[in-house]
Structure formats: structure tokens, C-alpha cells
Amino acid sequence: MISFGLVVHGPSSPLVAPLGSSVVLPCYVNELLLMEGLEVEWRRTDSNTLVHLYQDGQSRPESQQEDYHDRAHFFTDQIQRGNFSLRLDNLRAEDEGRYTCRVYSQRDSGETVVEIKDAVSGSSRSISASEGEDITLNCSVDSHIMLDEVSWKKTDEGEVILVLLYQNNKTLSDSAHERYRDRVEFFTAEIPKGNFSLRLKSVRTEDKGVYVCQVFAGGLSDSVTVVLERLGES
């Protein structure tokens, strides 16, 4: 939050949203402003590209950079209440980054910066293993995100099996399906760094399949997939 006399509020942490979804970039003030002379502009912080503009009592989609046509929208009925948030639809990989919301009133101005980032990363590939060995399925989360839940699930063969769950800042080992009980664990010391990789011990033939690490944060979610493809003899 940056103030030049007008206090403009935004989120306290980066926004997490999956590709193709809609995400709301919060920007608001706690005081009623005169509509006359009010101007609000959203820009990419890195390139100064104009994402959307509110001016002279209405939104100005014709001023938007082409990439944001029909994708970036104000909540126009909320602007008179001090809500200048922006809805960005059909989220793309190139939308990741920082956005500045600048508000100009007759007397003061202020701004806040909102960041969209891809919160989850991992191998997203096929791996192979030998029966009886221990393997690691990779999944990392941005450590600045306030997490609600992280789950590992096996999702192939027409069924979904819960492999391990992290919820309310705790690893719930008892949540594991009996097939994985006492064979799966997080790297506990790495969790504060955002590392939610899964250690799977004593790999068996029936472990072969698709594993999904899904992260929930602030009502949004993202995931990474790892396929345990081949099992050879140890």
C-alpha cells in the first residue's frame, strides 16, 4: 500500500488462481469520494501497460491494451462505494506479475500493488522407480501464500484415493488411505519453505499411476501432477 494522501487498500499477500479462471484484484478505499474528477487506472507495474481505466464517471474499455479487451472489468456499481477492484477473466500464464491500482480524487491520490503468481510448481512429468525403493514426488508452494490446505491424491483407474493431507497447519497422517498408511510423509522441516513434496516409501506395483498435489488458498486452488509410470525390479 502506497499513499500520497489517499489510503488505498489491497491484499496482504499474492493472489493464487489457476489458468483459465477469473480472479479479482482487490483495490478499495474506506472513505466516500466525490465522483466528480475521480479517476482509477490499473496498470502492469513492470511495463506500465494500461489494463483498465475509469474516468469521467464511466469505464473506458477503448483505452485498454488489446490483451485485456473483454477480460478486465470494473465492478461499476461498486465504484461509488469506494470499491475499485478489477476482475480479470480467462487467466493466462503471461498475466502473472504485479499490477498497480492508482486512484485520483479531486484533492488526493494513492495506490496499491497487487500480485498474481503461479503458486504451485513441481515436476509435472512421468517418473519411474524400482519396487521396494523410496521415491519423492515434487510439489512446491510459494512460501508467502496463506494456505488453507494441501492434499496429495492418486486419481487414476476411476477412483480418487487420499494419499496425504496437510490442513490447519498440521500434517494429518491418519487421513492417508490404508494402502499408504505409514508409507507416506512430508519433509516436515521443509514445509515452512513451501516444500510439500511427498516421500513414498517401499514402492509397490499397485502404486503406479497418477498423483495430484492440490493447493487451496483463499478460495482458489492450483495443482501439479506427477505420473509414476514404470516400476522395475529392484
Rank of each mutant, 00 (worst) to 15 (best):
E229A: 12
C27D: 04
K154S: 08
G37H: 11
L137I: 08
E178K: 11
A93P: 02
R81W: 08
D156Q: 02
E133S: 14
E62A: 07
V120I: 13
D46E: 15
S12E: 15
T205N: 04
G218I: 12
G5F: 00
M1K: 10
N90C: 06
Y28M: 04
R43H: 02
S223M: 07
T45A: 15
A189C: 05
H52L: 10
Q106L: 15
V7Y: 09
K153F: 02
G218V: 08
R183C: 05
K170W: 04
E157L: 10
E190W: 09
Y99I: 05
E159V: 13
P192C: 10
H73N: 13
S221A: 09
S173T: 09
I116N: 03
A119L: 08
R92N: 04
F216D: 12
V160L: 03
H177C: 10
F74A: 02
Y180H: 03
M1A: 14
S12I: 11
R81V: 00
R199K: 14
E233A: 07
V203S: 09
V120K: 02
G57L: 03
E185D: 11
V184R: 00
E62Q: 10
E31K: 10
D182V: 04
D207K: 09
L53G: 00
I127V: 15
A93E: 12
L32Q: 13
Q58I: 05
L38C: 06
E149F: 01
K154A: 09
A217P: 11
